[in-house]
Amino acid sequence: MPMQKPSFVYVSYIHTTPEKLWAALTQPEFTRKYWFDCGIESDWKVGSPVRFRRDGELAMDQVLLECTPPRRLAYTWSMCGDAEAKSERPSRVTFELEPVGDQAGASAPVVKLTVTHDDFPAGSVVFPRISQGWPVVLSNLKTLLESGQPMVTTWESCAATTKDEAVVAA
């Protein structure tokens, strides 16, 4: 139970098992398919780095805070972007996986995934930037696990207002 009021709480019910969902959260071949081409890497020991790489380049560098497979995962959250975002103290993201039993007519058991993002410093510049991203990532993750097919999403297709994308679309 968080003592501080969380900034975001996202919930998705996914037809899968906790083990498969855990693999999808912690294996780079999975995360690349639904997380804007980012592959996650860590030795999954508390205190170790959790790194996201896109095309071999380091996109995010976090620290593992909690790891209880296949139930609970938490790491710090900081952005690589500009100097202002980089200098900000990291926030924290927590994933909780909870089996909710077999549902009538469902082809697979259902897992409730709760993603909580909290511990932002006051006046955070990172906070408004990430609020758009989580629902996209979680919706993609659900589609991937339930259908085996990821949505066609790259970081560029999510950042819908960029000029390049408008040119591609035209």
Binding site: V9, V11, S12, P135, V136, S139, K142
Partner: peptide
């Protein structure tokens, strides 16, 4: 909390 994940699924 407002959970926008189901709305994202509709959008997608």
């Amino acid at each position: 909390y407002l959970n926008p994940v189901p709305l994202q699924e509709i959008y997608d």
